[in-house]
Design a binder for these strands. Structure first.
Length: 582
RNA sequence: GCGUUCGUAGCUCAGCUGGAUAGAGCGACGGACUUCGAAUCCGUAGGUCGGGGGUUCGACUCCCUCCGGACGCACCA
């Protein structure tokens, strides 16, 4: 469909520039011509507003539209119908052609919608990056779905993608949970308390609050523990390793559950010292300077900021130093063309500075670094707070959703049809959360209302899953219907609803490309909702299997299959499980 | 104070590089299951697109300003 649009645009463009020349105006003004989609398909499939040309031609936009239309009528042009609507030159593109083309394209199955927009591009994407002192929460789920989904979308656009996870396994917060465990743990293990191992660790982190009340020195002791850890103290490292293993194993369990995976893990404990040499190098070549107090800094005045310390006066490194070294280290590991950081928008400053410094150090790839900045997930009463216990835990959330989905299955009496109710409920739960998180514009903060946000009706993941299940159900019954003996005839699909569906199916690859170019899964989510909802209306209004005309029935079913391909592929890109039955 | 960012229906969100009457879902109210799955569909009510200027043939979209919120402005990560 894209080439048809382009064909029309060129035809109109040519006609317009000719006309401009005749009016002795600059033909280059034709570049102002924009192609848009009319509000309703009854007005046309594509439209060209003529306002921008009015002044140069000294004609009313409506007259221009008429003149251009006449000119186009009398020459070779792409097939379709021209309709002038006031100042708009609208085109009804040749439906049969597009329908036939679309039904053919969809035969690519799981590959339908893949583009080569990014082929040959190596993209590294970092996301999740959990701390090992507590389990994942709702915020991580947003990060994870954005990261995983973006990675899948980039791959679908032909990119070579490497997903990485930087585990934050060192630092004062880790020491706090260790200290707390040393005090209250009594060498117990997760299985002794029947807890998921990351929750087990997290509970000790929370209990550090109790520890502070008991022992005012607790904060200092945690600091001492960190020094011991950095000094390589063996007992400390033993405990550290044990607790980190618990945390990481538990977190990985959640990844498995949500369908998130990584090609490579980096552990902060192994890389936090990298970057020191880079800072030295930068100092030597004049990119950085040594301040009076002995610390090494970078001047940021050219990007409107002040200065930033990169190495303390005692020579120890800071967060920026680490990230600096890590980026360079990663490029050596895997020479990417682009590096995407999926990190909350609170760190905008950090990345702005980081990218600037890397560029200043002369790394050619530095201009292709991208901070996929996303907003916080807030509760109706405000931000989630660990100490107030309002953090929405990922596993707990999924469990309670699963329970709701299960109730739904039971209340509809569908446990037989569904086969495995447990598994189905789990997939519905995942569909609900992932859709909810993916549908919002990444950069914006969002509000999560535990009571209302995760319903299964309306604009939700399960709604889309349901449409997939309905089509799947029809396909299972195909053999017993009229369509079994019919043949597919694109010209029979003449209803407005059918045309709207075809356009949505045909527009899917563009949505994938759009989502990829902008690192924005939400455009894909809304495209899927549009198509699911169009299908639902269609399904309601028109008989498909029950259609008496066998050719019409077969054609309609083919259209539904096309919709199904889009739903399946799109859900996959959004990390939402597809369900044959639900 | 400075910077970034957001402010669209009661609530949660869309609105493509400015274009034809601002769209969904939830909630409210009213309808539709002897028919392909009602986790569905249809209808009604609900909006000075935070306020005010400006640019433009045209502004939810761009610019300025004010108001309000969030987040940054660490030798914490």
């Amino acid at each position: 469909m894209k080439n048809i649009k382009d064909g029309w645009k060129n035809a109109v463009l040519t006609a317009v520039s000719e006309l401009l020349a005749e009016k002795s105006a600059d033909p280059a003004l034709a570049a102002n011509l924009v192609l848009e989609t009319p509000p309703d398909s009854e007005m046309g499939d594509i439209g060209f507003p003529m306002f921008p040309l009015a002044k140069a031609m000294r004609m009313s936009p409506a007259d221009i539209a008429k003149t251009v239309a006449n000119r186009l009528e009398n020459r070779s042009r792409p097939s379709g119908k021209i309709k002038v609507l006031g100042p708009y030159l609208n085109i009804f593109i040749n439906r049969e052609e597009v329908i036939a083309e679309t039904l053919e394209a969809v035969k690519a199955g799981a590959k339908y919608g893949f583009t080569d927009a990014l082929s040959g591009t190596k993209i590294m994407i970092e996301f999740s990056s959990p701390n090992t002192n507590k389990p994942l929460h709702l915020g991580h789920l947003r990060n994870d779905v954005l990261g995983e989904s973006s990675a899948r979308i980039l791959k679908a656009n032909g990119a070579d993608v490497m997903k990485i996870n930087l585990i934050n396994d060192r630092g004062i917060h880790i020491c706090k949970s260790m200290l707390s465990y040393m005090k209250y743990g009594a060498n117990r293990e997760p299985k002794d308390e029947g807890k998921k191992s990351d929750h087990f660790v997290g509970d000790y982190y929370v209990r550090f609050n109790d520890l502070i009340k008991e022992d005012p020195q607790a904060e200092e002791k945690a600091q001492e523990l960190l020094v011991k850890w950095e000094g390589g103290d063996s007992t400390t490292h033993e405990l550290w390793k044990k607790m980190n293993d618990w945390a990481v194993k538990g977190i990985q369990n959640t990844y498995k559950r949500t369908g998130v995976s990584f090609d490579k893990y980096y552990f902060e404990s192994q890389v936090y010292l990298t970057g020191k040499e880079e800072v030295q190098k930068g100092l030597n070549n004049g990119a950085f300077f040594r301040a009076e107090d002995g610390s090494i800094r970078v001047d940021l005045s050219s990007i409107g900021l002040e200065e930033k310390v990169l190495l303390r006066k005692d020579g120890t490194s800071i967060y920026m130093t680490q990230d600096l070294g890590l980026a360079i280290h990663r490029h050596k590991d895997w020479p990417f063309d682009r590096l995407v950081y999926v990190v909350a928008n609170e760190q905008q400053y950090h990345f702005k500075v980081l990218f600037y410094i890397l560029e200043k150090l002369g790394y050619s790839w530095a201009k292709n670094l991208y901070h996929l900045s996303y907003g916080l997930v807030n509760l109706p009463e405000g931000r989630m707070k660990t100490r107030e216990g309002t953090v929405v835990d990922a596993d707990t959330l999924l469990d309670s959703l699963k329970e709701l989905a299960m109730e739904e299955i039971l209340s509809k009496g569908r446990e037989e049809q569904v086969g495995d109710p447990e598994l189905t409920a789990e997939k519905i739960a995942l569909g609900a959360v992932h859709y909810y998180l993916a549908q919002a514009t990444p950069s914006k903060d969002m509000v999560f209302n535990p009571k209302e946000s995760l319903s299964f009706t309306g604009n939700t993941g399960p709604y889309i899953q349901y449409m997939g299940a309905r089509i799947s159900s029809m396909l299972r019954k195909k053999a017993d219907s009229a369509s079994a003996n019919g043949s597919i005839k694109p010209e029979l699909l003449a209803k407005k609803t059918e045309w709207d569906l075809v356009k949505l199916v045909a527009g899917y690859p563009e949505a994938v490309e759009d989502a990829g170019q902008n690192y924005n899964p939400s455009v894909l989510a809304s495209h899927l909702y549009d198509i699911a909802s169009s299908f639902s209306r269609y399904y309601h209004d028109e008989p498909i299997l029950n259609c008496p005309d066998k050719d019409l029935s077969a054609s309609r079913l083919a259209l539904c299959e096309a919709v199904l391909v889009v739903l399946k592929n799109g859900l996959e890109l959004l990390c939402i499980p597809f369900l044959e039955v639900m």
